[in-house]
Design a binder for these strands. Structure first.
Length: 408
RNA sequence: GCUGGGAUAGCGAAGUGGUCAAACGCAUCAGACUGUAAAUCUGCCGCCUCACGGCUUCGUAGGUUCGACUCCUACUCCCAGCA
C-alpha cells in the first residue's frame, strides 16, 4: 500500500491522486469497481433510482448508488436480499453501492422511541412496531451486501445544543457497537440476534456475490455546534474496537449549505485524510457540491435531483426552472443547450412540458435523466477542475452564473 | 305533443330563504422540495385593489320577501319516459 492510499482490508481501499488544500481527487476501490472522486452517488433508496433503469443511470455516467437499510428491511426484507446473493445481484446493478443505516429515516418517523439499546418505531407501511439496533442495522447491511455501509447513528430531536449533544454521544456509543459488530460479521460473515422484537438477520453462508468485505463508515454528528463537530470527528477518527476502525466517514445532520464550509473545514481537518468522506444527503444545489468538494468531501448523495425532476424542477446552467410553467409549452429548445444528457440531446422543453401536463410517466424519466446527469456530471467537472488547477475559477464562474437570477 | 328531471365559476359537481363569490374534485397559474412515508406538498383560482375593502354573479326576464343560487310566473335550452 502506498502512502497515498488507505486499505483497512484488501477488498476496500481509497487512493488519493491529488490534494488541493482540503480538497482531493481520489479513487475508492470496491469489490464492485472503482469510484473516481469527488463523485455524486445516486439515491436508490428502495433498490432503484426512482424513474431510472440501471442502464439509464449507467449511461448518464453514475459510478455508484446508495440504498437505504430501513426501507429494505421493510420491503422486500433483507433475508430475501441475502438469499438473492446481495443487492447488486438482486437488482442487476453492477457498480459500487452504499447503504445508509436507516438512522436518518427512523428519526424522521413519528413516535420514535430511542433507548441506549436502539430505536423503536412503527413501519410507515403497515404500522407494525420494529426495533433497530446498531447490531441489527449492521447485520441487515451485510445481508444487503453493499460495498460501503453507514454506522447506525442518531439524529437530534431538535436543533438545541442539548439535544444535539445527546444525539452525538449516543451516535458515538452506537458507533463502537457498530465497529464491534462489523468485526464479528467480517469474521463470521453474519451472526444471529435472536431477540424476538429485534429485527433479526438469518445466517449467511456461501454467498459469493456478496462482497467478502463490506466497508463501514462512521457518521459524524454535532449539528451547527462546532465544538460538538470537533469532538465527534475526533472521537470517530480515533475509535478502534476489536482491531476494527472505520473505513471512511459520513458527515451527517447537514441540512443547509449555510455554514457548511466552516464546519467541513473543521471536521475534515480532523478526520484521517486517507480515508474517504461522504457528505450525507447534500447535493440539491451546485454550491453544495462545490463547497463539499472544496472542503474535503469525496462523495455526495441527495434525493433532490430525482425528486425535483419528478416534480418538474429542472437544473440549467442559469439556475433551476419549472418546466410546467406556461412559457415552456411552446419552447422548442432543449432544457439546457449546453447539456449533453440524453434528454437535452433529443427533446425540447415543449415536449417535456407536454408530458408533464399530461402526467405521462416518461416526463419523470426524461427529467430524472437530465437532473441526475446534471449533478453527476457537475461533480465530475469539479474533479477535472481540481486535476487541472482551475477549481477556483470554475467554481466562481459556475456559481455566479447559476445563481445570477436569485441575486437580483 | 304530453309527463318528469335539469340548467351553479374553464369542466364536473355541492348548495334548496340570510353565516354564498359560492363546498369539493379536475384543469389553469405560480411556489416549494437536500442520508425519499414525496410522479408529492403549498398557494392562487368572477372583476378591481399591494392590502383593507369594494363590485358584479348561480340559463333569460319578471315577481314574492327586510333579504333569493334557494320560493312563484313566463320563456329558452338539455335529458329521460310516453305518444
Amino acid at each position: 500500500m502506498s502512502n497515498n492510499s488507505y486499505a483497512n482490508r484488501p477488498e476496500f481501499s481509497f487512493t488519493i491522486e491529488k490534494q488541493v488544500g482540503l480538497a482531493r481527487v481520489g479513487t475508492i476501490h470496491t469489490p464492485h469497481g472503482d469510484i473516481p472522486t469527488p463523485a455524486f452517488v445516486a439515491a436508490a433508496t428502495l433498490g432503484d433510482v426512482k424513474g431510472l433503469t440501471w442502464q439509464q443511470l449507467d449511461e448518464l455516467g453514475s459510478d455508484a448508488a446508495l440504498a437505504n437499510t430501513y426501507h429494505l428491511i421493510l420491503q422486500p426484507g433483507t433475508d430475501l436480499l441475502a438469499r438473492a446473493s446481495g443487492l447488486n445481484n438482486f437488482t442487476g446493478h453492477t457498480k459500487p453501492t452504499f447503504t445508509d443505516s436507516g438512522g436518518f429515516q427512523i428519526f424522521s418517523l413519528p413516535e420514535v422511541k430511542i433507548t441506549n439499546n436502539g430505536a423503536t418505531f412503527r413501519s410507515h407501511l403497515d404500522g407494525h412496531e420494529l426495533t433497530i439496533t446498531p447490531e441489527s442495522s449492521m447485520q441487515a447491511q451485510w445481508q444487503i451486501g453493499a460495498d460501503i455501509h453507514m454506522a447506525f447513528d442518531q439524529l437530534a430531536a431538535s436543533n438545541s445544543r442539548e439535544d444535539m449533544q445527546i444525539a452525538m454521544e449516543r451516535t458515538h456509543a452506537w458507533a463502537e457497537r457498530c465497529l464491534r459488530e462489523q468485526a464479528a460479521l467480517y469474521s463470521h460473515y453474519i451472526t444471529l440476534m435472536p431477540k424476538s422484537q429485534v429485527f433479526t438477520a438469518s445466517p449467511l453462508s456461501n454467498q459469493p456475490k456478496i462482497p467478502p468485505y463490506q466497508a463501514l463508515f462512521g457518521v459524524v454528528q454535532g449539528g451547527k455546534f462546532l465544538d460538538l463537530r470537533r469532538k465527534s470527528a475526533k472521537t470517530l477518527a480515533e475509535m478502534e474496537v476489536s482491531g476494527q476502525v472505520f473505513d471512511g466517514f459520513g458527515i451527517g445532520g447537514v441540512f443547509t449549505a449555510d455554514g457548511m464550509d466552516t464546519m467541513l473545514q473543521l471536521v475534515n481537518q480532523i478526520l484521517p485524510s486517507r480515508r474517504p468522506r461522504h457528505l450525507l444527503g447534500m447535493g440539491a444545489e451546485p454550491r453544495d457540491l462545490f463547497i463539499g468538494a472544496e472542503f474535503g468531501c469525496d462523495t455526495f448523495d441527495c434525493v433532490a435531483p430525482t425528486r425535483q425532476a419528478r416534480n418538474g424542477a429542472l437544473y440549467t446552467r442559469d439556475g433551476r426552472i419549472n418546466i410546467k410553467n406556461a412559457k415552456y409549452r411552446h419552447d422548442f429548445s432543449p432544457i439546457d443547450p449546453e447539456c449533453n444528457c440524453y434528454t437535452c440531446q433529443h427533446h425540447s422543453k415543449a415536449y417535456l412540458a407536454h408530458l408533464f401536463h399530461a402526467h405521462e410517466l416518461t416526463a419523470g424519466v426524461l427529467a430524472s435523466i437530465h437532473n441526475e446527469y446534471f449533478v453527476v456530471n457537475l461533480t465530475k467537472q469539479i474533479r477535472e477542475s481540481l486535476l487541472d488547477d482551475t477549481f477556483q475559477t470554475f467554481k466562481r464562474d459556475y456559481l455566479t452564473r447559476y445563481y445570477a437570477k436569485n441575486m437580483l
